[in-house]
Design a protein around this nucleic acid. Structure first.
Lengths: 113, 113
DNA sequence: TTGACATATACCGATATTGGAATATATTGA
DNA sequence: TCAATATATTCCAATATCGGTATATGTCAA
């Protein structure tokens, strides 16, 4: 059989470097598609397609203004990442503690000299 | 032409749900491949292949013990995520502030009544 | 209504990725 | 040395994904 993953979750949406660039440029604030196309160097369809993916997972929202579409970051949707990372904080800290102990040991081995 | 992204960065490595499961199960501590295969329900080659990807981006490290390979989480390698998320913290907080102001406004509109 | 502008969509070819099955490569113990 | 165990690797088919080109859709202005 074949693959299982889809673009339809936040982790996949963010896995694409170009999509991360788009998110990055939106930190500055709401932008029209054309502005994004200008800021990054990507083709218009390319940007539109990536925006669609980002939009589907809720990472950006869209508002029409005349014939332009203004896209905006929805940082709240980054919560899954925060939650996911939080699970690893503990493991992380434990490793750092062990590292600290190790360094301390090294130091103590050196001192008696 | 074609695609540009590869599995060779942390974001892509983590984009796969199965790989996240593997990472999750390693929070408990070092585990042999067979143990992982047993804990999650994945085939042995499947696990080995995912471990390879995770290993290539440094999210796990490996240690041989007899004929078994013990894999261990390397939470330090999640730093790129932390850094990436940090950039959005500000936007996040601003949104929350605006939300707060909005709620305050709503409240004030109600009060005079 | 027509034409220009802004964006979205459809279609396509190239390529990446996944999982399965089979097999290769250790390593241990008899 | 040989069989058993543990893991990695190879080969394969199915399919997802990306970017490009062309085109559709929608909106404004004259």
């Amino acid at each position: 059989m074949a693959r299982s993953s889809t673009t339809s979750d936040v982790f996949n949406a963010v896995a694409e470097a170009h999509r991360r660039e788009i998110l990055d440029t939106l930190i500055a604030g709401e932008k029209a598609v054309g502005t994004i196309v200008g800021d990054l160097s990507m083709s218009q369809p390319q940007v539109s397609k990536h925006l669609r993916v980002l939009s589907e997972v809720g990472l950006v929202s869209c508002r029409a203004e005349g014939r332009r579409r203004l896209y905006r970051l929805e940082p709240v949707r980054l919560q899954p990442f925060h939650e996911w990372l939080a699970k690893y904080e503990q493991a992380w800290n434990e490793r750092l503690d062990r590292m600290g102990d190790y360094l301390k040991d090294l130091q103590q081995e050196g001192e008696p000299q």
